[in-house]
């Protein structure tokens, strides 16, 4: 059976430090304003008690990638293992994919005049290395999971700020933070 690779993002562990985002940016020597991974602040009442919480997202390597369907030149392919690959050689920079993606993942690189997105570091995966964001997260909060093999018991497909998963069936799952006990001063 083919693989279904996807990110598993542990929000319980994530400290919102942005190291994933910046190490990716640095490793790929992208035009530096380009971000393939993005850390977003979540509402502070996410778990009931007020906390600082963040979620790190990249391409969700969807089962039904809207980018792929929207691309007029066939620059997108979905690999056997589920990774959605964007071939920049073929890209004409029309930005249709960016408009189609409910997560606004493909972004326009004004210098190259092409779109750009996370590749789940498939070149690294193919030689047995982990994606940069997975390897460089100081808290080990990002994993790659083969969702055909493993169903994380507390994994969920939706968090606030994240688009409705029923549209494109993203593979990314999240582990939500558990509320801790708080003794706050009454005012």
């Amino acid at each position: 059976m083919a693989k279904k690779l996807g990110f598993l993002v542990n929000i319980e562990r994530c400290i919102g430090c942005h190291a994933c985002e910046i190490s990716c940016k640095s490793f790929y020597q992208l035009e530096p304003e380009m971000r393939r991974r993005r850390v977003t602040e979540l509402p502070e009442d996410l778990v009931g008690t007020p906390v600082r919480a963040f979620v790190s997202t990249a391409c969700n390597h969807c089962d039904e990638p809207a980018c792929k369907n929207a691309c007029p030149v066939g620059a997108y392919t979905k690999r056997e293992d589920g990774i959605v690959v964007h071939n920049q050689e073929l890209c004409i920079g029309c930005q249709m994919c960016g408009k189609a993606c409910p997560y606004k993942v493909p972004v326009y690189n004004p210098v190259k005049r092409k779109m750009d997105k996370c590749s789940m570091c498939y070149e690294r995966l193919d030689v047995g290395q982990l994606p940069i964001c997975v390897e460089k997260c100081p808290l080990e909060a990002i994993q790659i999971v083969d969702y055909n093999e493993v169903q994380p018991e507390n994994g969920v497909s939706i968090v606030p700020t994240f688009a409705d998963p029923s549209i494109t069936h993203p593979t990314t799952q999240f582990i939500l933070p558990k509320p801790g006990k708080q003794t706050r001063r009454s005012s």
């Binding site: 020597q29 035009e31 530096p32 304003e33 004004p110 210098v111």
Partner: peptide, 11 residues
């Protein structure tokens, strides 16, 4: 000028 954030010693 060739990369938008202006780093030197690039490609």
């Amino acid at each position: 000028y060739r990369n938008t954030e202006g780093t030197v010693m690039q490609t």
